[in-house]
């Protein structure tokens, strides 16, 4: 196995994980073109290849604190359809950061696709920050497709904060997230998407608040440009005394289309569920304000978009 990164690898890793592979420390597992590229484990974080299917088990020992795991995926081989199953077993009282993501470089007319199915088993009182960035590039007209599925099981008192970012080069994506929360657990999801040209992005969140005093905040901010299409669906099931806040903000530009489909089910009298959705163009007063500070209309638009997706 040649684990020396080429220039494209380095660029993609920088884009999706902001890492320099030569300086990477701690636990990591880099997958390239459907195969293991390079891996490192630590005394408290083990990474094991699955035997029954493509993927890995990431096992984080209980009480592991202030450690991180990088598990980026690179696709450069034309026409590859890569599906991977990654399971995260996070021990009780651990406090870790997991940085995932996928970058596709496609110079061909063939479709490149990566479907990552990630399942999180977060132990009691454990705290996880999960970052997942998606990026596509290349000179070909082949589609770059990314379909991530994230399934989250939070034990009592567990917390998971998930940040996802997709702002460039992904032709089509269907993001599916399902979460099941026990007592006193908390799930925060922050999604940021920008689509351009004829790109399509669908995100679908399903959260079951099964435990007493469980809570979730789902925040989606997106920008749809050109002729792109986006759909945001959320389905929150409040089955006990719980709290949920779902917020979907989208800026629609040019001929783009954005659909928001909210659903909140209070299945218990003590379920407190809120949904907010706002879709619209960039406010004229925002452009005027920034222009009154000396920015051109284009510069003003760029600042507004950058801020919105920050």
């Amino acid at each position: 196995m040649n684990s020396t990164p080429n220039e494209v690898d380095k660029k993609i890793l920088k884009k999706i994980s902001n890492i320099d592979i030569s300086k990477l420390k701690g636990a990591y597992n880099i997958r390239k073109d459907g195969k293991l590229f390079v891996r490192n484990t630590t005394p408290t974080i083990n990474i094991v290849s699955k035997k029954d299917k493509d993927g890995i088990d990431i096992i984080i020992k209980e009480n592991t604190k202030n450690e991180s795991v990088h598990i980026p995926v690179i696709l450069e081989k034309e026409g590859l359809n890569d599906t991977v199953y990654n399971d995260f077993h996070i021990g009780e009282n651990a406090d870790v950061t997991i940085i995932a993501g996928c970058g596709i470089h496609n110079d061909s007319h063939k479709k490149s696709e990566h479907d990552g199915i990630h399942t999180f088993y977060v132990g009691k009182n454990a705290k996880v920050k999960y970052i997942e960035n998606h990026y596509g590039e290349g000179t070909g007209d082949g589609k770059n497709v990314l379909n991530p599925t994230t399934i989250i099981y939070l034990e009592e008192g567990a917390t998971l904060e998930m940040e996802t970012l997709q702002i460039q080069g992904v032709t089509s994506t269907i993001r599916t997230t399902k979460a099941y929360l026990k007592n006193d657990s908390n799930l925060v999801i922050k999604e940021k998407i920008m689509t351009t040209d004829s790109q399509e992005a669908t995100t679908d969140f399903y959260v079951e608040l099964n435990g007493k005093n469980s809570s979730t905040h789902v925040v989606s901010r997106s920008i749809a440009k050109d002729g792109s299409k986006q759909q945001f669906s959320s389905n929150i099931q409040g089955n006990t005394k719980c709290f949920a806040h779902v917020e979907c903000d989208a800026i629609v530009m040019d001929d783009a289309k954005v659909v928001a489909i909210p659903r909140i089910d209070a299945n218990n009298v003590e379920a407190n569920l809120i949904h907010e959705a706002a879709i619209g163009k960039i406010a004229g007063e925002q452009l005027i304000k920034l222009m009154s500070l000396g920015l051109s209309e284009k510069q003003a638009e760029k600042e507004i978009i950058n801020g919105f997706l920050k």
Partner: peptide, 30 residues
């Protein structure tokens, strides 16, 4: 508007404009 601003004309709106995602530090840098 921006050409006038760059000549040295400033304007404070009656109702300050709100921006999602832009922080106080950002707007002062802008």
């Amino acid at each position: 508007i921006n050409e006038r601003a760059n000549l040295g004309i400033g304007f404070a709106f009656q109702q300050p404009v709100k921006f999602k995602g832009i922080t106080v530090e950002d707007i002062l840098n802008i």
